[in-house]
Every structure is written in C-alpha cells, then in structure tokens.
Computed example of a mutant assay.
Amino acid sequence: MGTVLDTAIDLLRGRRIAVLTGAGISTDSGIPDYRGEGAPRRTPMVFDTFLSSEDARRRYWAGSHLGWRSFASVHPNDGHRALAHMEEAGLITGIATQNVDDLHERAGSANVTHVHGRLHTVSCLRCGRTFDRHRIADEIERLNPWIAMPEQVRLQPDGDVEIDASQEFEVPSCPVCGGMLKPDVVFFGETVPPQVFAEARDIIAAGDAVLVAGSSLVVNSGTRLLEVARRADVPIVIVNRGETRWDARSAVRVEGGTSETLSAIADALIAPF
C-alpha cells in the first residue's frame, strides 16, 4: 500500500498543475509563518491606520525598511526550486502566491502572480508612480543615517520587524510629487486589485489539478481561488505542516514540509518512469 505522498503524486501525474503557495513555503528560507507553530503574536498594519496616522507610518516604514533589508538577504529553498523545475518541464500553469517575497522568481519561476503584492516596489498614493524599493531604501538611509540593522531581528512574513526608535524615523516621500509612499503590498483592510486576482484565477482555472503548498487557507483570497477549482471539480492536493481549512475538500493532504515534499513530487513527475 502506497503512502499519502504516493497518492498525491499519482493524482498529479499526467495533469496540468496550478499552484497556490503560502507563507509555509518560505519558512525554510528563514521567513516565519503567520500561523505555524511558534509564529509570533503581532498586529499587522491596517490600511486606514496607515493613511490617517503619521506615527503609524513612521513605525511601519522604520520596521519595514529593516525587514526588507533582511528579506533581500534570504535565498530560495528546495521547495521554490522544485516548482521552478516543474514549470521548466511544462508541468504547471503558473504560481499564485500569497507571499510578498520574490523567492519564486529568484528560484527561476517565470509565471508568478503575487496575490498580496510585493515588497520590492513602492508606489505613490497621490500620483501613482512606482519606484524600485532600492531607490526608496537609499533615500530612507540618507534621511535616517542612524538606522542600522539590530543584532537580533525577528522577521515577519510581510517583511516587517519591531524596533524601538521609530519615533525618530523620517518617512520618505514621493521623489516626483512629494506624496505619500506605500510598499506595493496589500494591507489589512485593502482588497486585492481586480486585475491581480483575475491573473491568479486564470492560473488556477487552467489547471487539471491544484497543488497548494504551505498555506493554512485561512485568508479569503486563497479560498476564493480554490472555489474556482472546486466548482470545476478539479482535484486539490495540499502540502502543509498542520491542518488547513480545506482539508475536507481536498483530494489528499500531505502532512510535511514543502521543501522535501515538493522536491519528491518534482522528482517523481519529471523523471522518466
């Protein structure tokens, strides 16, 4: 009798696979999960608070800057690389990710839609122009020459960290119009842009099977995407450490880490048999 992993591989073999990833795929790169074992308690930034409170913007930008510098130093893991190899082999329709890091792209994946946005660009809420994060980071360090990476930083999944000196922090403004800048991530209280959700939905709809990797499927955007597959009667395979909200609706759930499990799936599906 085969294992649960064997069952998952047999179900995926010969199908075009749509992929949905969550924070759990990046934990082996050193970015913590929101809800996994040992995840820190935290209060994420709310969009209305960001807009209305200068103090909140100072706290957010100070922590986000340090967190982004940490994000830039992490590397893709075997789970990211396994999906990139599967895409190269023509096995997957693309990746819809709930993560704001760029580890899928750095591993070699080309067709990636970031449902919750990306940390690596910043936009002006007044004029709409978008800037590379490196440019804004350089300006932050010019305005705040005292800022430095603390020796002990607890990185958050959205790229934020907690620091004590945020009241001294000078927030950068738009280099073009002087307006309010915001990283291109979806804050709590914001909605996923319709075009972005449509791109993710198309990835899922193009699959004959859906592979979920490293998501507890608590966030509404993920469940909305899986509803597309459920309505089409497409089988769903979940790889995650711990239970998810869609276990009962999946064809199979593999309990385990994404690095080793996705590597095993890729090896089995790509290798001749």
Score class of each variant (00 low, 15 high):
119 L>E: 03
86 M>P: 12
125 L>A: 09
177 C>V: 05
167 Q>K: 07
99 N>K: 04
149 M>H: 12
135 R>S: 13
2 G>K: 13
99 N>L: 02
15 R>S: 09
94 G>S: 12
44 P>R: 11
28 D>L: 01
36 G>T: 01
257 G>R: 04
226 L>G: 10
211 L>Y: 04
67 G>C: 06
251 A>M: 06
255 E>K: 03
184 D>T: 03
216 S>N: 09
241 R>N: 00
91 L>W: 10
42 R>C: 01
235 P>N: 07
237 V>N: 05
175 P>I: 04
94 G>Y: 07
71 F>N: 06
7 T>D: 12
78 D>R: 13
167 Q>N: 07
15 R>T: 08
245 R>D: 00
256 G>S: 04
74 V>C: 05
234 V>D: 10
42 R>Y: 12
272 P>I: 09
260 E>M: 03
137 A>H: 11
110 A>G: 05
114 H>K: 14
206 A>M: 09
14 G>W: 03
108 G>Y: 06
43 T>S: 10
103 L>G: 10
140 I>T: 11
243 E>H: 04
174 C>S: 15
106 R>I: 03
58 R>K: 15
239 V>L: 05
23 A>W: 01
110 A>P: 00
193 P>K: 08
183 P>N: 06
163 I>E: 11
114 H>V: 03
183 P>W: 01
156 Q>C: 02
124 C>R: 11
206 A>C: 07
184 D>Q: 12
150 P>Q: 08
198 A>K: 12
82 A>H: 12
175 P>G: 11
159 G>H: 01
47 F>D: 13
74 V>L: 02
219 V>Y: 01
83 L>G: 15
221 S>T: 12
112 V>G: 13
165 A>N: 11
81 R>F: 13
176 V>E: 14
69 R>S: 10
113 T>Q: 10
66 L>F: 02
214 G>C: 06
33 D>K: 00
54 E>W: 03
236 I>N: 06
164 D>P: 14
175 P>Q: 08
12 L>G: 09
226 L>P: 09
99 N>M: 02
20 L>E: 04
70 S>D: 05
265 I>H: 05
183 P>M: 02
103 L>E: 06
242 G>R: 00
2 G>Y: 07
269 L>W: 02
239 V>Q: 05
5 L>T: 10
123 S>C: 10
24 G>Y: 00
27 T>W: 00
221 S>L: 03
90 G>W: 10
100 V>P: 12
171 V>L: 08
113 T>C: 14
247 D>P: 02
135 R>N: 06
206 A>D: 15
257 G>V: 02
158 D>P: 07
239 V>P: 08
204 I>D: 08
38 G>V: 01
165 A>I: 11
143 L>Q: 14
234 V>H: 08
22 G>N: 02
264 A>P: 04
212 V>D: 00
46 V>K: 15
134 H>G: 12
121 T>Y: 00
251 A>W: 06
44 P>M: 07
233 D>R: 14
79 G>T: 09
188 F>N: 01
71 F>I: 05
205 A>M: 08
